[in-house]
Structure formats: C-alpha cells, structure tokens
Simulated assay, not measured.
Amino acid sequence: MHPLLRRLDDLGAHLATRGDVLALLGLGSAGAEHDRLDDHSDLDFFVIVDDGAKPRYLASTDWLAAPCPVAYSFANDRNGRKARYADGVFVEYAVFTVDELRALPIAGARVVWRRADAPADLTSCGPAPAGPPFDTVEFHLNEALTNLYVGLHRELRGERLTASRFIQSYAVDRVIALLHLAAGPGHRRDPFDLSRRVEAAYPPEVLPLAEMVPGYADNRRAAAFTLAWLVDRYPVDPVIRAAIEQLLTDGPPPRR
C-alpha cells in the first residue's frame, strides 16, 4: 500500500473511534483513481460528520494529528484547512454534513471508512461540476480568439500580468477544450481543471504548450502562435482575426 493511502487509512481508523463522524472520503489521487498516487501527490479528503459536530472539527486539529503530529496548518476555506504533517505528508481537507455534501459537485470520490449507519450513496452526491455555458467548437474557438484580443489590448496598455492570463491561460484552456471535443470522452480527465494531465493526453506536436505558454515577457509571441494554431485548424471569423493581427503588428487603430 502506498504510504499516503496508509496515512488515510490510519486517519479513518481514528475517526471510527469518534461517535460523531459518519465517513472519510478520499478525493483526487486519493480517491477512486488512487493508482495515480506518486511522490508528488498530496492527500485530499472530506470528513463527513453528524449535524452539530462540524464546528469542533474545524476548530481543532487534534483528530488530524492522531496518525502523525501536524507541523503546519491554516484555514484556507470556511469548510476546512491545508496542513503538513511532520513527516512531510501534505493534506487538504474539508468537513461537511451529509446535507452539505449532497449539494456539492464531487467526482471520483472513494469511501475510505464509513460508519455502519452512514448513507450508502455518499460518493454519488451532488450535481455534476459546472461546465462552460456551451461545450461547442464555436464557443471555445471564439472564446479563445476574444481572450487573445482582450489580452493584447491589456499588453499594449502595459498590464502585462493580466494580459498573460488572458493569452497564456484563458485562451489555452479553450484550446484544450477544443482538443477534448475532438478526442471525445477521455480517461482520467479532471472535471474541475482542464490543465490536469494534458501533457500525458496530448504530445507536443498536438498541443505545443512551450509555444503557447512561453512566459510573462512573451505575450505577443504567445498570442501570435495560438492564433496561427487556431487558423490552421478552424474556420476563424475574418473580422476578429484581422483585429488580432492588427494588434500584433501595429497596435490598435485610431478611434473614429
């Protein structure tokens, strides 16, 4: 057993001795796809408690320290904390009641431990993760193009950081969404983060990230490359294409 899974099992064994805990759920690489765990993984989990018990588990980390002393922690959310054990295991957790859990979009959860009277459907609670308003080529293509357009205007204004986010992050997310559409349903895609595991899914000749995400100082080069990538593969509207190319060459035209 991977040491991280053993840590989660040990935590579950301790929580089983407390009468106000219903279940421990592993998430992410500690969830249903736990064979993805490696030396760079952390532990993501939910602690499901009885009504009225949540404040105690948020206020104290004594239960968390049962398997190993906690060296560092802070509240990163109103429902939980991030923490690092003394032996280097990093965790992120949240505490919920069953009713709260049912309202959450969760995917790939695994029951590490559950009390005998806990609901049997804990890992199927909640709606599906919210996606884009339209999961179509037209939407993702034009979102990418307008991200490039807005980002180049911000670059020309001197707002390089926000420009880099529009050009090298938001637009690239739409490129990944286009590739996902073309490829169809994919194994182990993260429903919450398009960027996860894309290097394993698409080789550099398909998704040339080094050119699309060259860094803070290279927004114009990144925009030019991503525009060319889109033009080569999709029917880009000539109006928005010309506007982006104008920004790449001469800057914005004078206002009339």
Rank of each mutant, 00 (worst) to 15 (best):
H2Y: 04
H2G: 01
L4D: 02
L5S: 09
R7P: 00
R7Y: 11
L8F: 02
D9V: 14
L11M: 09
G12I: 06
H14T: 00
L15M: 11
L15A: 07
T17H: 04
R18E: 10
G19F: 08
D20H: 09
A23F: 11
L24D: 06
L25G: 02
G28V: 08
S29F: 03
S29T: 13
S29K: 02
A30K: 00
A30M: 13
E33Q: 09
E33H: 13
R36I: 15
H40T: 11
H40P: 00
S41D: 10
L43T: 11
D44C: 05
V47W: 01
V47C: 09
D51Q: 14
D51C: 01
R56H: 09
Y57L: 06
A59H: 04
A59Q: 07
A66V: 09
C68A: 06
P69D: 00
F74I: 14
F74M: 08
N76F: 06
D77I: 10
R78G: 03
R81H: 15
R81C: 08
K82L: 13
K82Q: 15
Y85V: 06
D87A: 04
D87G: 01
G88Q: 02
F90M: 06
Y93M: 07
V95D: 00
T97G: 14
V98G: 07
D99T: 13
E100L: 03
L101F: 05
A103C: 12
L104I: 08
G108C: 04
R110D: 00
W113H: 00
R115Y: 00
A116S: 13
A118M: 12
P119C: 05
P119I: 08
A120I: 14
L122H: 03
S124R: 14
C125G: 10
P127E: 10
A130V: 15
P133M: 10
F134P: 01
V137S: 03
E138D: 14
N142A: 00
L145T: 09
L145E: 08
T146I: 15
L152T: 01
L152Y: 00
L152H: 01
H153P: 01
E155H: 05
L156I: 03
G158Y: 10
E159Y: 10
R160M: 05
T162G: 03
S164C: 13
I167E: 03
I167M: 05
V175N: 02
A177N: 13
A177E: 11
L178A: 03
L178V: 04
A182E: 13
A183M: 10
P185W: 07
P185K: 04
G186K: 01
R189M: 11
P191M: 09
F192P: 04
F192L: 02
L194T: 08
S195G: 10
R196A: 15
E199K: 14
A201K: 13
Y202D: 02
E205R: 08
V206D: 10
L207K: 02
L209A: 06
A210P: 05
E211L: 15
R220V: 15
A222V: 02
A222C: 12
A224C: 07
T226L: 15
W229V: 02
D232S: 06
D232V: 08
R233G: 01
P235H: 01
D237P: 03
P238R: 07
V239H: 09
I240R: 05
E245R: 12
E245I: 08
Q246H: 05
L248C: 11
T249W: 05
T249R: 06
D250C: 10
R255Y: 14
R256K: 04
R256L: 13
R256E: 12
R256W: 07
